Amino acid sequence: MATKAVCVLKGDGPVQGIINFEQKESNGPVKVWGSIKGLTEGLHGFHVHEFGDNTAGCTSAGPHFNPLSRKHGGPKDEERHVGDLGNVTADKDGVADVSIEDSVISLSGDHCIIGRTLVVHEKADDLGKGGNEESTKTGNAGSRLACGVIGIAQ
Rank of each mutant, 00 (worst) to 15 (best):
G148F: 00
P63Y: 11
T40M: 11
R144W: 13
R144K: 13
I19L: 07
D110S: 13
V82I: 12
I36D: 04
G130P: 14
V82K: 02
I113D: 03
T55D: 14
G34E: 03
S103E: 09
H81N: 13
V95R: 09
V6G: 02
S26N: 07
F51W: 02
A146W: 00
K71C: 05
S143T: 14
Q16P: 05
H44T: 01
F46N: 00
I36G: 01
S106W: 04
P14T: 15
V15Q: 06
L145M: 10
W33S: 12
T136F: 15
N66W: 03
E78D: 13
V95L: 12
L39E: 00
G11T: 04
I36H: 03
K71S: 10
I36V: 09
L9N: 00
L39S: 00
V98R: 01
T117G: 06
G139A: 09
L43T: 15
G11C: 06
S103A: 11
F46C: 07
G130K: 15
G115S: 05
G17N: 01
E22A: 09
L9W: 00
K123Q: 14
H44V: 01
G42D: 01
A90C: 14
D53G: 10
R80T: 05
A2F: 08
D93E: 09
T117F: 10
K92V: 10
H81V: 00
L43C: 07
I114W: 00
G148S: 01
G17W: 03
H111G: 10
D77R: 08
H64K: 15
N66Y: 08
E22W: 09
S106F: 03
G109M: 01
C7W: 02
D12S: 13
C58A: 11
A56N: 10
A96N: 02
G115C: 10
A61I: 14
T59N: 13
D12P: 15
G94C: 06
H111C: 11
G109I: 00
G130M: 11
I18Q: 15
L127T: 12
E25V: 05
G94I: 00
K71M: 08
G86S: 01
I100S: 05
K92G: 12
A124E: 08
G148M: 00
V95E: 15
